[in-house]
Design a protein around this nucleic acid. Structure first.
Lengths: 191, 191
DNA sequence: ATGCCACTTGACTGATCGGTCAATTATTTA
DNA sequence: TAAATAATTGACCGATCAGTCAAGTGGCAT
C-alpha cells in the first residue's frame, strides 16, 4: 500500500537476521512479523539476499549515525563521551552480540556480496572512531598519534569484548575488557 | 568399517562447519567429503547437531592442546613464545576467521547446547592463556598482576583482531592489532 | 467513467533439507 | 562353523525452504 510496507520488511528482516543469522533467517518469520504477504515482498525486493543486504546497510548506517558520529559532532570532551558510550550497557545486547560482527563472521567468507557490504560497514565503523580520536587530538585531549591504528585496535578490541560477553553470558567480562581498553587509550592522553 | 569412519565424519564435519557455519553446513557435503553414506553416519551419531558438537569439541580441544598448553609446558620465555605464536600468520586462516568465534557468534543465542559447549571452550581458551601469564609471573617475566583479567582482555582482543582481518581481508590489520596488544601486555613486564 | 499502474493476495512449485529404515555385508564372539 | 553384533548401503519420507504467478484491489490520472 505504501512505503510503510517496505520499512516493515526492512525492520523485520533486520531483527530476524540479527536473531538467527542470515542463513537461519526464515522468510516466513520475516513476513509474519512484518504482516506482509510473500508476493508483496517480492514486489519490493528481488530476493531474500537483496532484502537482507538492504536491511543491514540501512539499519546499521542509522545506528552508527546516532552513536559515534554524534560524538564527533559534539563540542569537546570527545574521549569522555566515547568512554561513556562504551560503558553504557543499555547500548548493548550481549545475548545477540554485535550485529556487524555476527554478519561478518557468518557471511564474509561465504558470499561475495555480503563480504563487500560488511567490508564497507566495518571500514565506516573504524573511520567514525578514528574521527573521534582525531577530534580528541585536535583539542589536545590526546597526544598526536597514529589515530588510524588506534581506531583499528579500539574497534577490534571492542568487538572482541562484546564477543567475550556473548560467549560467557556475563556482561562483566565486557566491562572488564572495556576498562583495559580505556586504560590503553588513556595512555595516549596529553600529560 | 572401523573407527576410521567416525574420524572421517568428525574431520569433514569440522571443515564444513568451519567453512559454512553450522546452519549452512549441508549433511550431503559432509557425507560426500567424508566418503560415508548417510545411514552409516546415523549409526555413529544420533543427528547432525550431535555430530557437529562432537566435531567442534574434539577438534578445538586438539587445537588448544598443541598451541597454548604447549607454551605453558615449556621452560621459560613464556611471553616470547606466546608473542611469536600471535605473530605467526601461518597459524591463522583470516578468510574463515576463528573457529571458536564463528560458532559463538552464530549459535550461542540460538541453541542452548551450542551455548553450553562454546561457553566451556571459550573458558578453556581464557584459562590456557591465563596459565601462560601465571607462568610468566612466576619466573618474573611479568609483574604480579590480575592475570585473569589480563587473559580475558588478551583473548578478546585477539578474537577482535582476527575479526578485523576477516572483515577487511587484510592480514596487516591483524598484525597491527597484535602489536598494540603486545605493547599493552609488555607494559606489565618486570622492569 | 475508463484505463493505468502500484500494490496485494495466497495457492502453488521444485529443490533441498535432515532423518528413517529394511536389507545387506563384514567382523567378532562362542 | 554358527550365531550375534557391528557397520554399511541407498532408496525413501515428510517438512521446509525460497521463489513464482495469475488474479484481484484500490487509487489516480485523463
Amino acid at each position: 500500500m505504501e512505503q510503510n510496507t517496505r520499512q516493515r520488511l526492512i525492520d523485520a528482516t533486520y531483527e530476524e537476521v540479527y536473531s538467527h543469522g542470515y542463513q537461519g533467517a526464515a522468510l516466513a518469520n520475516i513476513l509474519s512479523n512484518a504482516g506482509v504477504h510473500k508476493g508483496s515482498m517480492y514486489h519490493f525486493f528481488p530476493n531474500k539476499k537483496e532484502m537482507a543486504l538492504c536491511a543491514i546497510k540501512e539499519k546499521i548506517a542509522e545506528r552508527f549515525g546516532t552513536r559515534y558520529l554524534a560524538i564527533a559532532r559534539g563540542d569537546g570532551d570527545y574521549l569522555k563521551h566515547f568512554f561513556e558510550g562504551l560503558r553504557d550497557l543499555n547500548q548493548r545486547d550481549f545475548r545477540r552480540g554485535c550485529p556487524v560482527a555476527n554478519i561478518v563472521q557468518e557471511m564474509s567468507n561465504i558470499d561475495e556480496d555480503f563480504n563487500t557490504a560488511m567490508k564497507e560497514i566495518y571500514a565506516k565503523f573504524r573511520q567514525s572512531v578514528k574521527i573521534i580520536f582525531d577530534k580528541a587530538v585536535s583539542v589536545r585531549e590526546l597526544q598526536p598519534c597514529d589515530t588510524t591504528k588506534l581506531a583499528l585496535f579500539t574497534t577490534s578490541a571492542l568487538e572482541g569484548a562484546i564477543l567475550a560477553a556473548k560467549a560467557s553470558g556475563d556482561s562483566q567480562d565486557y566491562l572488564d575488557c572495556v576498562e583495559c581498553l580505556i586504560g590503553y587509550i588513556e595512555s595516549f592522553r596529553k600529560k
